[in-house]
């Protein structure tokens, strides 16, 4: 959109467009993306590391850590905790998004 700088955009024609251009709303979308995109990249990488390591580095995965318990088992088990931790972090971030949304709705009344 290099040819249409923000200050030369046509006037918003609907209430939706007016809200969409509020600086608070733009900041909300940016903040959400700053959390969601890295979180998705992280959890996918962590998850797919499991079949990749098991498939191509089986000897590493068979290394024993505690008694009979090996790296493969611990890494698979850690996936459950990884998922829970990412979920909790998201809920904390989303509580912040909710506050921004409340402000936007207040302003748009």
């Amino acid at each position: 959109m290099a040819e249409t700088p923000v200050n030369k955009q046509p006037q918003p024609t609907t209430e939706w467009e007016r809200i969409e251009r509020l600086p608070e709303f733009r900041e909300l979308i940016a903040a959400k993306m700053r959390f969601i995109v890295p979180a998705c990249v992280f959890f996918s990488s962590y998850y797919f590391a499991l079949p990749i390591l098991v498939g191509w580095f089986p000897d590493l995965m068979k290394t024993k850590v505690f008694g009979p318990v090996n790296v493969a088992y611990l890494f698979a088990l850690s996936q459950f905790f990884m998922a829970w931790i990412v979920a909790i972090l998201y809920v904390r971030a989303a509580n912040g998004f909710d506050k921004t949304v409340a402000k936007i709705l207040e302003k748009s009344k």
């Binding site: 998705c40 959890f43 998850y47 698979a76 996936q79 998922a83 990412v86 979920a87």
Partner: peptide, 8 residues
């Protein structure tokens, strides 16, 4: 494992 991670 994948069945839970999918919920993210």
């Amino acid at each position: 494992v994948g069945w839970l991670v999918a919920y993210l």
